[in-house]
Every structure is written in structure tokens, then in C-alpha cells.
Amino acid sequence: DDNLLNYDAVKDFNNILAGAVDSSVSSGAFPLILGGDHSLAIGSLAGISRHYENLGVIWYDAHGDLNDSRTSPSGNIHGMPLGISCGIGDTDLVNLYDAGPKVKPENIVLIGMRDLDEGEKQYIHDNDILTFTMTDVRMMGIADVMKQALHHLAEKCDGIHLSLDVDGLDPMETPGTGTPVDGGL
């Protein structure tokens, strides 16, 4: 796809990461993945999803990362990993490590949202994804938001993957992000 930047590098890295996460979980270890680009969530979710029938995802980020090549204004795959994991977008990335989607949209909770593209807004609306904006976090407090997120996932999910993008935090606290959005925690 001409609109996917660094495609081969992202795909190759995520295949390796998926195997490492799968091996980590298989051995009984807790996989903690730290990286510099949120596209690594493609491999992280691919590797862990084979260990759960109904994996839940808490996605703490300023962005939904639910774009595909048609809805992405930039073509950056780091704006697509959650969408890819839900089965939208490039076929090879969707089928990375195991064929098909890795998570169901109804098993996702978005937290910290404050910069969503139009395609992401539509996907969230169409799939009724539980979403907490930063306004919600400020009004309710992060503890209450997390309680609601866990309650939403607890009865239907057999595992939870937490993804925290540094741009979910305020850029005054974390100036190293390439996609800063004011108003985070």
C-alpha cells in the first residue's frame, strides 16, 4: 500500500515481537514491551492474543490509532495498530503472526482521547467502543475511569492488554513524543 510509511520495517519488527511476546507468555512470564513507536502494538497484540479467547484492551493514548490507509492523514502505521488488530487495513498486517483480527472492538476501552481523526470517530461510533476523553478523566478522576474500564471488560474478557502511549501524557511532562497533544495527564 502506497500510503503506509516504513511498511517493511514495521512488518518485520512486529513479526519478531509477536514471537517474543508469545514465547514470554508461554513460559509464564509477564511481557512488558517498551518502544519508541506505537506500531509495536501490532506485534504485542498478535503475540498475546493467541493465549486468550476474548482479549480485552485498555488503550491509553491521545489518539485512537484506529486508522487504515484510507482514513490516515499521514500514512504513519503508528496511527493504525489498534485498527489493524481489530481486522481493518492492510491484509498482511491484519494477518501478522496469526490470521485474522486479534481483538474485538467491543473488548476495547479507549482512555485519554483528545485528538481523533474523522475515520477513527466513525469507527468508534459504529462499533460502540467505550471511550473516555481527557475531559472525562478530569471530571471523574483516573481511578474511577480505570474502575469503569475494568468493570466493562471483566465479565467478557479472559485477559487484558494495557497499552500506554507516551502522547497520552501531557507533553510538558513527556516532551519526547513525536505527536504531542496538550492536555494529557
Rank of each mutant, 00 (worst) to 15 (best):
D1Q: 12
D1M: 15
N3I: 05
L4A: 13
L4C: 13
N6D: 15
Y7L: 14
D8G: 02
V10A: 13
K11V: 09
G19K: 11
D22E: 14
S23V: 03
V25I: 15
S26G: 08
L32E: 03
L32I: 15
I33S: 07
L34C: 09
G35T: 08
S39R: 04
A41Q: 04
S44M: 05
L45V: 06
L45P: 02
S49M: 06
S49R: 05
R50M: 04
R50C: 08
H51C: 07
Y52L: 09
Y52V: 05
E53L: 10
N54L: 02
N54E: 13
I58K: 01
H63G: 02
G64K: 01
G64Y: 01
L66M: 04
L66C: 01
D68N: 13
S69P: 00
S69L: 00
R70A: 00
S72V: 01
S72M: 01
P73C: 00
S74W: 00
S74I: 01
N76S: 02
N76R: 01
G79K: 00
G79F: 00
G79H: 00
G79R: 00
G79M: 00
L82M: 08
L82R: 04
C86T: 11
I88S: 09
T91D: 06
T91Y: 00
T91N: 02
L93S: 02
L93H: 06
L96T: 03
Y97V: 03
K102S: 07
K102L: 08
K102A: 04
K102E: 07
I108Y: 10
M113K: 07
M113Q: 14
M113Y: 02
R114K: 04
D115Y: 06
D117N: 06
D117Y: 05
E120S: 11
K121T: 05
Q122K: 15
Q122Y: 04
H125A: 15
D128T: 12
D128G: 02
L130K: 15
L130Y: 13
T131F: 04
T131W: 03
F132K: 12
F132P: 14
T135W: 02
R138L: 10
G141Q: 06
I142Y: 12
I142D: 06
K147D: 15
L150W: 08
H152P: 14
C157L: 12
G159R: 11
I160W: 11
L162P: 10
D165M: 04
D167E: 09
G168P: 12
G168Q: 11
D170A: 12
P175N: 09
G176C: 09
D182L: 14
